[in-house]
Structure formats: C-alpha cells, structure tokens
Amino acid sequence: MILNKELYRHHGHLKGLFIALRITIKTMIMNLTGMEKRMTINYPEEKYFYSDRFKGRHVLTVKEDGTLRCTSCMLCATYCPADCIHIIASNNDDPSVEKAPVSFEIELLRCVFCGFCEEACPVDAIRLTGEYEMAGHSEQEWVMDQHYLAYRPLLSGGKGIVSTVDDHNRLKLRL
C-alpha cells in the first residue's frame, strides 16, 4: 500500500522518494559529518554506562579484609518479593562476626530488580549495580553464588567492592 499517493502523483517516484525520506537523509548526513551527536552507540564495541542508581546485577560487598560483609540476617530474603534469595547461615568462629553465610544464592531469573534487598540490608552488604549485560543458557547459569556475587573479575579485579562504612568505623560512629 502506498501512503500519500498524492505526493508521488505530483512529483514522480524518484523525487517523491527523496522528499519522503527528507528527515532520514538529513539526519544521516548530520551524523556522518559529525554535525550532530548520534543517539546510538556501537554496542558492543562501545559500552553504555548507567548511573549508579540503575538496578542491575547484585554484588555482595566485602570488608576491608576482603571477607563478606553479609551477616546472613536474612532480612533481604524476608523482604524479597520474588523469593529468590536463598541463604544458609552458620556459626563463624570469630566472635566479632558470629554469624556468616555459608551459602548465599540469588536466582536471577526470578529476580524483578526491585532493589528491596538493598534497602532491607542493615549493613550495606548487598547492592544492585549498573551491570545490565546478562545472558546465559541453562537455568544453572542464572543462579549466582556468593563467590560470584562478591568476587567476580568485574569487581575490582576479583577483590570485591569494599563498603565505605566499615565495621570499626560503624562502631566508632555508634558509640
């Protein structure tokens, strides 16, 4: 179906085509000559970085000594509307830690990226990051364990993200 038949009848087909594509051609020339900034990027060669407020793949933050901050209080698991956080807690021999997770898993396929877990956490141990590239095959690839959540290479080369408010600072502030 030809829209706006009147245009082609009046100008003929070739000229009519250029008139119809006026904006497209204009933008193409502007973009190619660099007179106007392009809206798109050459993904994946070029990456887009979202602001820190973006809710993407989770990280578990670490303390200054590199161990997990999470105390496995399970408040995130309690609050999570998708019921996708699974934590197994255990005794930690260090009495200043007392309780730490032996297993902390997030089922990414069920997660709705609401960020409630981040809000619920009393010790800034879980954060949602700007990481938005997610692909995987089997279901198993979508379950992130605590090692991946805290120490994947993307996070300071596997050293993890140190939370800014560390324990002794926190206690100093409180007392």
């Binding site: 399970m74 309690t78 005794n91």
Partner: peptide, 9 residues
C-alpha cells in the same frame, strides 16, 4: 537451633 532459621519463617 542457632542460625538455622529466622523465627519468622
């Protein structure tokens, strides 16, 4: 019982 569950579960 220590740390096995939170009581609200």
């Amino acid at each position: 019982f220590r740390f096995k569950q939170r009581v609200w579960f």
